[in-house]
C-alpha cells in the first residue's frame, strides 16, 4: 500500500513537473504546478508529516502560486510562443544532476532503507509532529531558524525599497 502510494504520487509529480515546463500557456503551467504541490503534500502525508503537508499547500499553493497567477494575469501573458534560449545550459545541468543520481544509486548509500524519524513510534505518541517540529526549531535548529527569519526580513525591506522609489531620495 505504501509503495503503491509512493509511486502514484511520484509519478504524478514527475508528469506535472514536466507539464509545467512544457505548456505554452502560463496559466496551464500554473495549474499543473498546483496539482504537483498537492501530490508533494500527499508524499508528506505518507511519511506521517501532516504538518509539513498542510504547510506545503498553505504556503506554496495558497500564497505563492496565487501571486504568480496574479502577475501572469496582470501582465496578460497570453502565450509564450518561443522557448527560452537556455537549452544548452539546461541539458548540461540535467546531465550533471542525472549523473549524480545514478552515482548515488550505484554506490548504494541511500537513506531509503533506514527508518525515518517520523516512523519512530515514540514521536507519534507525543502528540503529533507539530510539537516535535516546534521543539526542534527552538532548540537544535534555533540559529538557522533565526538566520532564515533575518534573510526574509532583508528581502522584505528590499522589496519595499525597490517598489517605493521615492523613499531613499526624500531622506538624502
Amino acid at each position: 500500500m505504501g509503495t503503491f502510494a509512493f509511486f502514484y504520487f511520484a509519478g504524478i509529480i514527475v508528469a506535472t513537473a514536466g507539464m509545467v515546463v512544457a505548456f505554452k500557456n502560463p496559466i496551464y503551467s500554473a495549474l499543473a504546478l498546483l496539482v504537483m504541490f498537492f501530490h508533494v503534500a500527499g508524499l508528506f502525508v505518507t511519511l506521517h508529516a501532516e504538518f509539513l503537508a498542510i504547510i506545503q499547500i498553505l504556503v506554496y499553493a495558497g500564497a505563492i502560486l496565487v501571486l504568480y497567477l496574479f502577475v501572469v494575469m496582470l501582465l496578460n501573458l497570453k502565450r509564450e510562443e518561443h522557448f527560452h534560449r537556455q537549452l544548452l545550459v539546461g541539458v548540461f545541468l540535467g546531465c550533471v544532476l542525472f549523473a549524480e543520481a545514478v552515482l548515488l544509486v550505484l554506490k548504494g548509500e541511500t537513506t531509503l532503507g533506514k527508518s525515518s524519524p517520523a516512523a519512530d513510534p515514540a514521536l507519534e505518541l507525543t502528540g503529533g509532529n507539530t510539537e516535535s517540529i516546534g521543539e526542534l526549531l527552538f532548540s537544535t535548529y534555533l540559529f538557522p531558524f533565526e538566520l532564515a527569519s533575518l534573510i526574509l526580513l532583508v528581502a522584505m525591506v528590499g522589496a519595499v525599497i525597490l517598489t517605493k522609489k521615492g523613499i531613499l531620495e526624500v531622506k538624502s
Binding site: 499547500i57 498553505l58 499553493a61 507539530t130
Partner: peptide, 14 residues
Amino acid sequence: INIGILYILAFASI
C-alpha cells in the same frame, strides 16, 4: 486530524 485548523486555512486559500 491533529492539524484540523491548518487544514481549513489551507483549503480556504485554495
